[in-house]
Design a protein around this nucleic acid. Structure first.
Lengths: 109, 109
DNA sequence: TCAATAGTTCAATATTCTTGAACAATCGGA
DNA sequence: TCCGATTGTTCAAGAATATTGAACTATTGA
């Protein structure tokens, strides 16, 4: 049996959990795609392609539990949406500023 | 022999490392104190009192390696300063917005 | 009914965190 | 100068998390 998705109410969403969720490159990329593509977007579309699907699934769980995304099953797929407005109300400018910062060129390899 | 502190050049400072460093409540509190107190500030002053000192030392190392603080030995103490201007130039508004968000009331226990 | 699709769950390994204990460096006073 | 106090670092071991292959679930379409 597959467990239903759990989404924390916005009151329980913490800055620390958001920062932690976004501190992983794969998760940050997912959120960037969800923002850019104009949510919603399903898992396989938003996730970096090179990761195993069990790892991807884990990353979505972290994002969900941090309160950043909302996930809904649509048939065989899962559709994810950013919880933009709720987060924007609780933490003004946070997502915009972080996403803007994520456009800065990363250090050379 | 005690190793000298290593501070990454600002080009090597990544958003991910900053977010990760700030995702820990103790480290976020340290940075908040450094900001509020008008840096510089030594370790024992800035760190949450309830943590073992080896843990505190570890948190300063994470902050240092993320590029958030600069540490200098002054006699028996270590003085830490936020690398405000450098970070502010590379990631505009990032620190201000995160620190502002950190003032939001956390969820009830 | 069956195969394909899209994810989830589990379990094992790998990595990272936390912290007590020992150590290092500096300072101030006797 | 020697000693003890102060500040913090380093090490090592156990605790906690992350990663991922493999098995499984649910849904859809033929």
């Amino acid at each position: 049996m597959q467990r239903p998705f759990v989404h924390p109410p916005i009151e329980d969403v913490t800055l620390e959990a958001i920062l932690y969720a976004l501190s992983d490159p794969a998760r940050l990329e997912i959120v960037r795609k969800l923002t850019a593509g104009g949510c919603p977007m399903n898992c396989s579309t938003a996730a970096p392609v090179h990761l195993p699907k069990s790892t991807q699934s884990h990353h979505y769980q972290v994002l969900r539990e941090a309160g950043l995304i909302r996930s809904e099953r649509r048939g065989t797929e899962v559709v994810n949406t950013l919880r933009c407005s709720e987060i924007g109300e609780k933490f003004p400018n946070l997502m915009q500023t972080i996403l803007k910062a994520s456009e800065i060129s990363p250090p050379r390899p």
